[in-house]
């Protein structure tokens, strides 16, 4: 059996080894790969004198049993001395759809960044930039640059009361008006990616790409 995926990475540090365990894959896969690596592929570094080991589980939420399972596998190798095992606990489980609201004016040369979705009350002037890992909603004039989904989220959208940007970016797609968009009326609009291309539409059509926004409104 060969393991192609890289759920387990082993790094050497000054006084030992760090096991970086992926936090996205199923836990079972993780254990299997860890077992395989210890028993088959990394014999050269895992045998010999006693080595201190730190285990990092990333942001995976683990129980004590899970931790014990990992430790059991590592204890199989006599020379590994486990020093620590820890997971990054998210401070407070943040709602990914939460909207952060801030007001002001982004002037030329200023950059506003937010992790998550942003509702900006005010103008973004030419030369100013707003970047966001999620959606950007501007209640005001967007005349500068807006970059939604900076971490690569292609589902992110940019909406503005007055959408007259210098440039729009969603994930890694960059678009500039007006030659790419054609002429439009001046009503509230939003930008989204449709099969990798920037599209502009009136705000009332947002439900077509955001089904989730359409909730039960009564009979």
């Amino acid at each position: 059996m060969t393991v192609k995926s890289k759920h387990v990475r082993i790094k050497g540090i000054k006084d030992g080894l760090v096991f970086l365990l992926d936090d996205k894959c199923p836990f079972e896969d993780l254990l299997n790969e860890l077992r395989y690596k210890l028993e088959h592929s990394h014999q050269n570094i895992l045998t010999g004198p006693i080595v201190h080991v730190d285990i990092k589980l990333g942001s995976r939420s683990v129980t004590e049993e899970d931790k014990a399972a990992v430790l059991d596998i590592l204890k199989g190798q006599g020379n590994l001395l486990i020093r620590s095992i820890d997971a990054v606990v998210e401070a407070a489980e943040t709602d990914p759809d939460a909207l952060f609201i801030i007001s002001g004016i982004v002037r030329s040369g200023q950059v506003l960044h937010h992790d998550g979705n942003l509702l900006y009350l005010g103008d973004v002037n030419p030369g100013g930039t707003v970047t966001c890992t999620g959606d950007i909603y501007v209640l005001g004039a967007l005349r500068g640059i807006a970059h939604a989904g900076v971490d690569g989220n292609q589902e992110a959208i940019i909406a503005a009361s007055l959408l007259t940007p210098t440039q729009l970016r969603i994930a890694d797609v960059i678009s500039r008006p007006p030659d790419e968009w054609g002429t439009r009326e001046s009503s509230m609009e939003f930008a989204y990616l449709s099969s990798g291309a920037m599209q502009i539409d009136k705000i009332h059509n947002i439900f077509k790409i955001r089904q989730g926004l359409n909730v039960f409104k009564g009979v």
Partner: peptide
């Protein structure tokens, strides 16, 4: 554009 930048710095 430059005035906007300056106002930002003055603020």
């Amino acid at each position: 554009r430059d005035a906007d930048r300056i106002i930002g710095l003055l603020e």
